[in-house]
């Protein structure tokens, strides 16, 4: 199902690019990019830009460690989170293809993964359930240095950018394991239900490339390395292991932290110069 949705999304993306390219009438220079493309009209001047697209972050989980029969939690586990980003800014043209873009962006990322552990293929009994929910939002201001390569069909604009910002992350994991036989004692079940809430600051260094199409439509791809500093963290939840009735409580708050992590992000999307 998810693959179908993703395939449909990619199809729509491609369609949108094609649609944009086909938007001009023949007398506007349709498909004659080298002769009458956006770069030719507005390259050597400053302009506004709007960007939106898919955002990926590999966020480091700070959930307490746990070792259950069917699920474990290790320190520093990376959580792959996808989301949606929006940015608006202005590109300032310098000279000879060099320009700089100042961009204000917001990112909302959320992933939900569920794993249902059936007892066996022919037994309709959910022996275990795992639910991983991750949710991150962040704001940033970035400044990039761009260089435009004016090709015939599409302009290519590699860039390097630096950014700073702040964000909030919630990482949650739920796991339960039920009894495996009616004769099992009640303490053979397992349970882990913990959520962390973190505020963080970050700086980011990115490398990317813009592909500028006809009439100001563009697409972009960027990878970045972020230094994330978690400033405060709240942990809520508890766990219980098989063979014991003891419940481990993780509730607690930590402030003025100085924990830093280096994480990877990637962006892929579309934009419009105006």
């Amino acid at each position: 199902m998810k693959r179908t949705i993703l395939a449909f999304a990619l199809l729509l993306l491609l369609s949108s690019i094609s649609f944009a390219e086909e938007a001009g009438s023949p007398d506007e220079g349709f498909m004659i990019f080298g002769d009458k493309n956006f770069a030719a009209e507005k390259t050597e001047e400053s302009k506004w830009i709007f960007k939106t697209g898919l955002e990926y972050i590999q966020y480091t989980s700070n959930l307490p460690e746990y070792s259950g029969k069917f699920e474990s939690v290790s320190a520093g586990t990376k959580a792959d989170i996808l989301g949606f980003g929006l940015g608006i800014g202005r590109e300032f043209y310098f000279t000879n293809g060099f320009s700089s873009t100042f961009l204000i962006s917001a990112v909302y990322q959320k992933s939900l993964d569920k794993s249902i552990g059936k007892a066996a293929e022919d037994i309709d009994y959910d022996l275990s359930n795992v639910r991983d929910a991750q949710y991150v939002y962040a704001y940033e201001a970035s400044l990039s240095l761009n260089y435009l390569l004016d090709y015939k069909t599409v302009d290519v604009q590699p860039f390097i950018d630096i950014a700073g910002g702040m964000g909030y992350a919630e990482i949650e994991k739920e796991y339960i394991k039920k009894k495996e036989a009616p004769s099992d004692s009640a303490n053979t079940t397992e349970d882990y239900d913990v959520k962390t809430k973190e505020n963080f600051l970050f700086t980011r260094l990115g490398l990317g490339v813009n592909f500028i199409h006809f009439k100001g439509f563009m697409s972009y791809f960027k990878v970045s390395s972020m230094i994330v500093q978690v400033t405060d963290k709240e942990t809520i939840g508890s766990s219980n292991l098989s063979g014991t009735t003891a419940v481990v409580d993780y509730d607690g708050k930590e402030k003025n932290l100085d924990e830093t992590e280096i994480i990877t992000t990637a962006q892929l999307g579309l934009g419009y110069y105006f």
Partner: peptide, 15 residues
Amino acid sequence: FIFLSCDTEEQIYHY
């Protein structure tokens, strides 16, 4: 649609 595609669900068999 890309955003919606972020959720996944799988089913496994233990025994």
